[in-house]
């Protein structure tokens, strides 16, 4: 990818972040080619959310650079935060949430506007959310809410879309639907996607690139290059086995020994039925 002449959609170099004295990210570097679908994989607490928040400018890094094609985060980056808890009392329909993605930062009441309505309707159609567009978001299922939030993030046609654990708490069918939807959208609109997850398996069919985070450090490349015993053992600092069973990947620490920091070394272990 380094030999490619096109500018990367996102370039992160030697990024370090410390929060209240603790090092969360330690010289993390990777770059994403335009239009690629990248999985940001790591266990809970490995720094995935901090990395995404740094890219968005919500966290100030202690070192390193982040360059993003297109400029300011609000314009160029769409963002789906980690499990939004939709308040069941919030009087917003799915349609209104998508509308807020368009002009929620503006002052004043939104005036009736045919162009705005059409754009919201088109976006709802693109994420296949027309069926529940007029229900309260708080009443929707997890998969439906996720689709609404993706529409919210995409309505301003960003070049880069960041999603923080969008697949957590979804059932297997919704996971497949959301991944398929994201894949279709990126293919069609040429958006670059960076999606964080603790389980890489649902993403294997669509992932062009993987950024694997552990203990604040990262390796990146294609799945074939990165998800290997030798590479991950070096990243974790102890022996890791990568087992491929029925087209699924299991990352296992030898013997399930306990790590120095007390966490069990068998994360992320993925045992799930074959689709």
């Amino acid at each position: 990818m380094d030999g490619n002449a096109t500018l990367p959609a996102l370039a992160v170099e030697r990024l370090s972040v410390a929060l209240s004295g603790r090092t969360i990210l330690d010289h993390v570097g990777f770059s994403l080619a335009p239009g690629s679908f990248c999985g940001l994989i790591g266990a809970n607490g490995s720094g995935k959310t901090t990395l995404l928040r740094s890219i968005l400018g919500l966290v100030t890094p202690s070192g390193g650079t982040i360059r993003c094609a297109g400029g300011k985060p609000g314009q160029a980056i769409g963002y789906v935060p980690q499990k939004i808890q939709f308040d069941p009392f919030m009087p917003l329909r799915a349609r209104d949430v998508v509308g807020l993605g368009l002009d929620g930062h503006r002052f004043g009441i939104p005036l009736p506007n045919a162009a705005r309505r059409a754009r919201v309707a088109a976006m709802l159609a693109a994420v296949d959310a027309e069926r529940f567009a007029d229900q309260r978001v708080g009443d929707l299922s997890g998969g439906q809410q996720q689709r609404v939030m993706i529409a919210h993030a995409l309505i301003r046609a960003p070049k880069l879309l960041l999603l923080d654990e969008p697949l957590a708490n979804l059932d297997l069918r919704s996971i497949a639907e959301v991944v398929g939807l994201l894949h279709r959208l990126t293919e069609k609109q040429g958006i670059t996607v960076l999606l964080s997850a603790h389980d890489m398996n649902p993403l294997l069919p669509v992932m062009d690139q993987i950024v694997y985070l552990a203990h604040g450090r990262a390796v990146s490349g294609t799945v074939a290059d990165v998800v290997r015993g030798g590479v991950l053992s070096q990243l974790y600092g102890y022996h890791i086995d990568v087992i491929r069973v029925h087209g699924r990947v299991l990352v296992v620490a030898a013997g399930g020994v306990e790590a120095q920091d007390g966490s069990l070394l068998c994360d992320p272990v993925h045992v799930a039925p074959i689709p």
């Binding site: 968005l56 807020l100 002052f107």
Partner: peptide, 23 residues
């Protein structure tokens, strides 16, 4: 209140989303 209508709703949705949109 009318002026603050949309930013307040966006913040209620998620403060981070509002921040990256420049609110």
């Amino acid at each position: 209140s009318a002026a603050l209508y949309r930013p307040l709703l966006l913040i209620a949705l998620d403060p981070d989303l509002a921040t990256i949109r420049g609110v």
